[in-house]
Design a protein around this nucleic acid. Sequence first.
DNA 1: TGACAATATAGATTATTTCTATATCCAATT
DNA 2: AATTGGATATAGAAATAATCTATATTGTCA
Lengths: 310, 310
Amino acid sequence: MDKLLTQFLAVADAGSLSGAATALFITQPTLSFNMNKLEEVVGAPLFERSSRGMTLTRYGETLYENARLMRRLYDNTLNAIADQKRGSERGMSIGSGYSWWTMFLRDMVVDYQREFPKAPVQVSLGNQLRLMDQMLSGDISMFLAHEIDGLSGAIGTDFVPLTRVYNAFFVREGHVLLGAPQSLSEIDSYPIVISSLAESRHERFFDPSRRRTRVETVFDRTSVAFRTNSLAACVDYALATDAVLVHTHVLRDHFRERGLVEVVQKDEPRRAVTGIYVLRERRGEARVEELIERITTACHAVLPPWEPAE
Amino acid sequence: MDKLLTQFLAVADAGSLSGAATALFITQPTLSFNMNKLEEVVGAPLFERSSRGMTLTRYGETLYENARLMRRLYDNTLNAIADQKRGSERGMSIGSGYSWWTMFLRDMVVDYQREFPKAPVQVSLGNQLRLMDQMLSGDISMFLAHEIDGLSGAIGTDFVPLTRVYNAFFVREGHVLLGAPQSLSEIDSYPIVISSLAESRHERFFDPSRRRTRVETVFDRTSVAFRTNSLAACVDYALATDAVLVHTHVLRDHFRERGLVEVVQKDEPRRAVTGIYVLRERRGEARVEELIERITTACHAVLPPWEPAE
DNA sequence: TGACAATATAGATTATTTCTATATCCAATT
DNA sequence: AATTGGATATAGAAATAATCTATATTGTCA
């Protein structure tokens, strides 16, 4: 991997130039020089220097995150080639949002592991952008999520559509909105709660031109009262206040069990597509395709299959 | 980005050394030399050379796909830092583990937002190390978590102790472990489920000397059957199998509602301190101090206050 | 204030990269 | 079968970049 970045990671990990220098078997002035150079390349200060060592600035933090990804991606790539040479199979791990995990993935995975105890599938739950991170660095080979609006093209992923979903609105029992069908603007007048927390480092997935239009920012107004990465926390919040929880309709029953009721909408809701993101490079591998197949089947046992838009 | 990979992409795209050389404004022998070197680094032949040019081998194909990802990742990282530099100041946001959220944070946040609807607080739930990440990169300004054992000093954070807690073990109803008090080693013989996904990138938070002794590695063995970042998924898994879920005792009631029962321990459990981590540089800001105050009050309404160790 | 532990700087040295020039290879053409 | 054109490979020289040694500077803690 890029030498400067390797050294950068070492310095960040060690917390000092001298420490990292020892670890890397080079001298401290070399690192000093190289880190200055890196800062010039990046165009931002990466460290705060003191007589106690080096601490990362927030730009340094961002670079650190991403440099870790790069190193993982790099290592995973070399391993993949080595595996390829040996002719051996690559491990597999899938990611998912919590909705799909509850809806059908859980059972599918349990079944799969019973059937192939030697070749287990690992599962990583999280938000779609984090999963995208993990997939791009080779830690997972596919994940289930909404089609991501405004996703930068040429990112090396395939999207296999599974089903259509729409955003529904959920409120606590006894809420004023529950009497009759409501229009979007009426719903909008209540505080909104959503379960997605964008992190600055994920900006990079989006085309700069479309950054402002993506789904996440639609609700990025003062009326988003509460925003978290935890669905359970959203439910808690909506139960305790008059806020409206926005989420895929597929969790309707799940929410109902927890005391949240769907608001009937006046207008036809906007639909979105859910499906599987796969690393393009892994398409065609037998086990990958089989898993896609299984997920598709499991999904369609519960949800209507996807049909191309009219 | 790494020079060799950049050149590799150029050669792959051009289909020949000479073509790529022209495009890169360097000479063909240089590329010839460098591609040989890259093959040595990767450990596999990347090209088939002929008098008509260079074609990728299957290893080359794999590298090509991944190198493109790396290039994107690299470019996007630089963009992200540039964006960050342009400075998007965000509102205040606090992090927490799910336990504290359920226990008292939820109500506190609800109250706070009622009082200050114009200055909402965002909440990020997740494991302590991830929250530390988010705090250092400016995404959140403080978070609630166990005192992190072996945390590196010079990291620029304050810790405000709140209360003492201990780890408990939870299993599905009817589990064999439930009959009588159990020793740690007996419990240990069952598959363990934990809701923390230790990521190696967090290593840098720890003093090198103490890295091997920290809490997370205690369970880092093959017997960790299932490990995820989602507490709900852990519960699902523990309900469906014989696995033992390890978690703070404070969620005892929460788990019981969901069908998991606490295993009675033979030995006195080890206690740990929970408190608030704050960016040292933000100490003193009125809103920050007020939030700390409120969290402290809310915590002590439910849990005993922290007393310095004897 | 003095010792210590850290980073920064300057100049010399070493290692690497790149270039020029030339050789070699292969296939299509004469 | 020889020639030609377009490609890669190799050798050695030249240029450039990376690293080291030695020393200065800075900040913290006792």
